[in-house]
């Protein structure tokens, strides 16, 4: 059984691609066969976050147009052998993605026996975002504890419940989860940032992960190594927990409180 997961948010810059890359790596590290697809046509970026930008020969639109086979376009990850990336096209043609074309590619991946297909959605609610979510079984809605991101997430939840294949088939709908990123426990404690519970209450969904704000995330994208692979990072542990929860494990949320700093760190502001 293949599960199609869309990583979406509405608002840009909240961490969709970072999340897609880390969830993909985490699932592959647990032995799952994973295909990561970049739906951001015209603004390819998942390849950079995955560190395979120089290995892109063919892209998603090439496969849809029949310029190459799916096998030729899938880039196999050098670190995790069950992980594959399908890059977005750089075309400016907005109509390059079609519902039929996307469905053919997804069907072929399903036929190939992939366990998970992760669709990295572009920001906004245009065609790319629509097609990224349309065939999904599950949605991970990435949200920052900030007003515009929360509001946009609610818009996206509305679309997930009406404009998807599962919604129109009456197949029980898309299973939705929240994943909070850029969470800053210190600011939450000071009343400067909404808490996990606040966001959960407003959006009325379960939380599959809370990723603390961390300098490791930028370092990871700088180097093209998804942050989940950085064993020393809290952000990595938080993503790994989210992967475990995706697979059905029950784990308490971590990193919701500020880490107690040692005497020296406090003295020298480390």
């Amino acid at each position: 059984m293949t599960e199609i997961i869309v990583v979406t948010s509405g608002k840009g810059g909240v961490g969709k691609t970072t999340t897609s890359a880390s969830l993909g790596c985490g699932l592959a590290r647990r032995g799952k066969r994973v295909a990561l697809i970049d739906f951001d046509i015209g603004l390819r970026n998942l390849d950079l976050i995955m560190g395979c930008e120089r290995r892109v020969v063919y892209d998603f639109v090439n496969v849809i147009n029949g310029d190459c086979t799916l096998r030729q376009a899938l880039i196999r990850d050098k670190r995790l052998e069950t992980l594959h990336v399908l890059a977005a096209s750089q075309t400016r043609d907005k109509d390059a993605l079609t519902e039929g074309g996307v469905q053919r590619v997804l069907d072929e991946l399903v036929g190939d026996g992939f366990d998970y297909i992760i669709c990295d959605s572009p920001a906004g609610i245009e065609k790319g975002a629509h097609l990224a979510m349309y065939f999904a079984d599950r949605a991970v809605v990435v949200v920052n504890p900030e007003v515009s991101s929360v509001r946009d997430s609610d818009r996206i939840l509305g679309l997930l419940s009406s404009k998807t294949r599962r919604a129109s088939n009456g197949n029980g709908g898309v299973k939705e989860h929240l994943l909070l990123t850029r969470y800053n426990p210190r600011r939450v404690a000071n009343g400067e940032m909404m808490s996990v519970d606040d966001v959960k209450e407003i959006l009325g969904l379960d939380v599959i992960g809370v990723v603390p704000e961390s300098t490791d995330v930028l370092a990871a994208s700088n180097s093209g190594v998804p942050v989940i692979l950085n064993d020393e990072s809290d952000a990595a542990s938080a993503y790994d927990d989210a992967v475990a929860r995706l697979l059905g494990e029950q784990l308490p949320l971590r990193f919701l409180e500020e880490r107690r700093r040692g005497f020296f760190a406090r003295m020298f502001g480390g």
Binding site: E146, V147, V150, R151, D154, R155, G158, S162, V188, N190, G191, E192, M193, M194, S195, D198, E201, I202, L203
Partner: peptide, 22 residues
């Protein structure tokens, strides 16, 4: 706190947008 203000504003606007969603 500003977090509480944010939550209140969101609660109202989200409820309003949901009611007109469909």
């Amino acid at each position: 706190s500003s977090a509480r203000i944010a939550k209140e504003r969101l609660r109202i606007i989200v409820a309003q947008e949901r009611s007109t969603r469909d």
